[in-house]
Amino acid sequence: MTYKAYWGTWLALLAVTLGMIVAGSGSVTGGALLVLLLLGMLVKIGLIGGNFMHLRSENRVLILIVALGILLVSIALFAGIAVDAARVYKLSQP
């Protein structure tokens, strides 16, 4: 990749971050904010991983191993415990 591409990625990252901060400081609320922020996060991860870490030009299986390895395991872990977190919250309410 060229230097230009790196700094283009940099600009894109800054733009997404700025958008997330603007959204987070009150202009969007509730579930829409959550979706927006998570989307922004995924876009940033894709930009850093794909362009800065050159994952884009690697073998497809390696991309799958890295992306699915981290994402699926994290999601499985969080999904498994989040239900109980809601339950603990409910039980703590009078």
């Binding site: 395991v73 499985a76 498994g80 239900v83 109980d84 339950r87």
Partner: peptide, 18 residues
């Protein structure tokens, strides 16, 4: 094996739905 760990916790107060 990554998504069945809860079967060690049936009596722990875990949500019965999960």
């Amino acid at each position: 094996s990554m998504i069945v760990w809860g079967h060690h916790m049936y009596v722990s107060g875990m949500s019965p739905y999960i």
